[in-house]
Amino acid sequence: MQLTRRQTLGLAGGAAAVVVTGFQVTTAFASAEDATKLIMEFTGGKEPASGKITLTAPEIAENGNTVPISVSVESAMSGDDLVDSVMLVADGNPNPAVATFHFTEMSGTAAATTRMRLAKTQNVIAVAKMKDGSVFSDTKLVKVTIGGCGG
């Protein structure tokens, strides 16, 4: 079969696409699927509702090594209106798990702040699990200028 110049170019393009997809599969970065799986494990298969939980993160993080992240959940933190735990997930990091906060009645409020690493621009998801079993989540997209996983 004689290949025209056009066909050769097309083939090369196709091959490049295969290489690119292959690369994505083999990189260490987690996919949104991994993040969803992690969240489902945390919630016990429940789909989180929106509301109650607020995730505060910068819109643009210049340095992905230390990105300040705050979560707070509306709750009386007594009796049955208690936040059990809040999980932070980053869907574009090599490992989507970030941290899990466990609160008690002694916490007073269900709010916490920490600093996290972000490898690239991605969604940060906070999922709150209440004592009564209901789950809530909030998502923020954080744009990262310099990634923070030593890559």
């Binding site: 090594n65 230390t66 990105v67 980053a90 990091n93 490992n95 798990a97 970030v98 941290a99 899990t100 906060f101 466990h102 916490a112 920490t114 600093r115 996290m116 690493r117 972000l118 923070g148």
Partner: peptide, 8 residues
């Protein structure tokens, strides 16, 4: 807090 490597 359970901490994973993504904490700074």
């Amino acid at each position: 807090c359970d901490v994973d490597p993504a904490i700074s």
